[in-house]
């Protein structure tokens, strides 16, 4: 464990908590893409299947359980409890265009053609694009509530911090995983324009308005 990975995981945890609290407190999921949350639930389910087979540490197990439970709780809040506030009209990204290519790619490029490894690889590829429906929704509505912006900033930062973690582990432990690194770079790059808007607008107290 290193400081980059720890802050990355905490940033990830913060993002998930921000979203849950936002939906729960405002009793509304307006401005939130249910599709992205479904994709995240799929990502954690396919990645953390090893929960039942391998024990790495209490921290690892605890965090995986939190991520899985929180992602399903978020999906439940969006599609069941507060579904009246779900923005059907704007949450229209075709997620099959993300799921299928990720699955095909995980069959073609992986470290080992075994079920758990393929599912892990699929979850890595899918996670790198899972935020697209949310970013698409923000671009369609042209704005995002500041709490949603904080959620996106924390979520985008987590994988960015993981990139630093992988650089550190390459030099400190001389190990690396190209699949995770390449997908992590793609994932972080997708947030770049949002990061720019977040720093130049939201941090100055303005609302996140995308140029129409």
């Amino acid at each position: 464990m290193n400081i980059f990975r720890l802050t990355g995981d905490l940033s990830h945890l913060l993002a998930i908590i921000i979203l849950l609290v936002k939906i729960w407190k405002t009793r509304s999921c307006a401005g939130i893409s249910g599709k992205s949350q479904l994709l995240f639930a799929l990502v954690y389910t396919t990645r953390y299947l090893d929960l039942v087979s391998t024990y790495i540490s209490a921290y690892n197990t605890f965090m995986k359980l939190i991520f899985i439970c929180a992602s399903y709780a978020t999906v439940y809040l969006i599609y069941m409890k507060f579904k009246a506030t779900y923005d059907h009209n704007h949450d229209t990204f075709r997620v099959e265009f993300l799921i299928l290519p990720s699955f095909v790619l995980s069959l073609l490029i992986n470290h080992d053609f075994a079920v758990l490894e393929i599912l892990w690889t699929f979850s890595i590829y899918l996670e790198s694009v899972a935020i697209l429906p949310q970013l698409f929704l923000v671009s369609k509505t042209g704005e995002a509530e500041s709490i949603t912006s904080h959620y996106l900033f924390a979520l985008g930062s987590y994988r960015g911090l993981y990139l630093l973690n992988w650089i550190y582990r390459y030099y400190a432990e001389s190990h690396y995983d190209l699949i995770a690194i390449v997908a992590g770079v793609v994932q972080t790059v997708l947030y770049c324009d949002f990061f720019y808007l977040y720093v130049t607008k939201v941090l100055k107290g303005k609302k996140l308005q995308l140029p129409a």
């Binding site: 690892n60 470290h111 080992d112 490894e117 892990w120 995983d177 699949i179 995770a180």
Partner: peptide, 10 residues
């Protein structure tokens, strides 16, 4: 192979 180690990450 390098992937076995990375599974200690979330």
């Amino acid at each position: 192979c390098e992937s076995m180690l990375v599974k200690d990450e979330l």
